[in-house]
Amino acid sequence: MSKIWAFMMIFSMAVAIFLGSPGDVISYIMEYSKISIQNILELAGIMCFWSGIFNIFENTSAVTKVSNFFNRFIFKIFDNTKLSKRAKEYMSLNIVTNILGIGNAATVNGINAMREMQKQNDKKDVPSDNMATFVLVNTASLQLIPTSMIAMRAMYKSANPSSIIVPVWIVTIISLITGVTMIKILNKKFR
C-alpha cells in the first residue's frame, strides 16, 4: 500500500516537473485536498447515521440470529476457531449490508468486524489470515442489484439499463472465487 502510494506520488511529481506544468501542482493539491474534505463530510453524516442504527441492532437478540444464519456457509472460508462471537456478528451484518447495496453501512460494520478480529490477532501490525480473507470478500462487489449503475445507464438513455444484472453476477462470482483462492494461497506464502 505504501509502495503504491509512494509510486503514484513520485510519478505524478516527476511528470509535472519534466513533462507538464509544475506551477499548477499546488493548485491541484489545494483542489483535491478540498475535495477530500467534502468527501469525508458527506461520508461522515451517512456513516454516523448507519452507525447509530446498527448500534441498536447489535444490542438486540436478532443479531445472533443473522450471525447463526451465516454461520452455516459464509464462515466456511474463515478459520472459525479464531473468530469471536462479536466478530462473527459484525461480519454477518457487513455481508448483509453489502448484498443489499448499502455501502456506507457495510463500511461501518466492516470496520467494527476488523476491530474485533484485531483483538484476536497475534501480530498487531500485520493482518491475520481471517482479516485478509475478510478484506478480500469486501473488495469483491457482493451487491445483488447494481442500482447506482442501472440508474446511471438510465440517465444516459440506455435502451435496457438493467440488462447488466446477470453479467454483473457472473463477473462477481468469478472475481470472488479468484480472490478467495488467491488469498488462501498468499496467506500461506506471506507469513
Binding site: 484485531q118 493482518p127 470472488l176 488469498i183
Partner: peptide, 23 residues
C-alpha cells in the same frame, strides 16, 4: 483495503492487494 486496514492501524497488506487486484 486502505480503509479497512487503516481503521485498525495496520499498514502492511500482506497478500491482500495482490489477490484483490488479480480478482
Amino acid at each position: 483495503t486502505t480503509i479497512l486496514l487503516g481503521a485498525v492501524g495496520i499498514k502492511k497488506a500482506r497478500g491482500i492487494l495482490i489477490a484483490g487486484l488479480m480478482a
